[in-house]
Design a protein around this nucleic acid. Sequence first.
DNA 1: AATTTATTTGGAATGGTTCTAATTCGCACT
DNA 2: AGTGCGAATTAGAACCATTCCAAATAAATT
Lengths: 166, 166
Amino acid sequence: MVLIRTCDLEPFQLTDGVPIMPTTTTMPTETAAQTLTDSGLRSTPQREVIYSILLNKRDHPTADEVYARVKTELPSISLATVYNCLETLVGCNLVRAVNFDREPTRYCPNLRPHAHFHDENLGSTYDIDLPPDLLEQIKAILPPGYNASSIEISFRGHTAPEAAQN
Amino acid sequence: MVLIRTCDLEPFQLTDGVPIMPTTTTMPTETAAQTLTDSGLRSTPQREVIYSILLNKRDHPTADEVYARVKTELPSISLATVYNCLETLVGCNLVRAVNFDREPTRYCPNLRPHAHFHDENLGSTYDIDLPPDLLEQIKAILPPGYNASSIEISFRGHTAPEAAQN
DNA sequence: AATTTATTTGGAATGGTTCTAATTCGCACT
DNA sequence: AGTGCGAATTAGAACCATTCCAAATAAATT
């Protein structure tokens, strides 16, 4: 099975400058708490809050940015815990880690297959929906004997000002 | 124009365990020296040797690995110079930097569009030829207003033992 | 040959991330 | 309700790839 090392967002609208929040998301069939305990892990306030922060504002924050946001809710949390929790959430597939070159890792809640677009002017990252058939075609370029467990597709460039999403 | 942030290798053969070295490569129309001076840079021994090392063994070495290899030829070279030279070569498009998550950057001589496959068992990286039409299809998933200057496609997984290339 | 400018160099600094050892927490079992 | 025990959190040190810096060297230009 080929995992998409990529994160998720409902298809955003580009018709005007207004950011469209996902209305229906491919919600996990269980709560985060359930997924955690199913993986033999505990559902802690830190993990829950960090996950909710990721769900809440899907702008692919870095660990530092997550840290800043969590502190408003859990002022005594440590950066190490933020890293630990993010790693845990990635580990049980609630969240995906996203990398652009050697920039700090970004995080987003795990949903469906998509590519990433990184705007070099704004520093923003957007999710690009990936059609299943295209994914199949991409997998098909691998020679026999190559077993891929994950794929990552990322674009770099800039977005037209009128296409601003967030 | 969309650049492929990816490096190159002639299509390797997988029929047996024998690594096939590229026979014909899409050689640059100019020498490295020429490309450098065309970019207003000097052709130095360090730059030339590093470039030749990259051409010589196309196994996507890290800066450290390049450093180790250069030292046999230029024993007094410094690691800082290796980084400088690699950056210079990347800057004038003779070489591509390749990243897998946050692992150390790898380098390969610049040729045609291709994806990367990273074998998690061996730590080896292989180039996967990217058909032009597929590339077009991938670019086509971008919504209007998204102007990509580069694409990167990378696989992670393992290769069957009998498909060993190098 | 002298001057300017680019390049190299070693070592210090940076910055994101991970490690460590100690504390705290949550759950299971009395 | 209290206790014990493994899991989770925490602060700070450590790590490591990479970059920065300031001095030394080399190459091109005058």
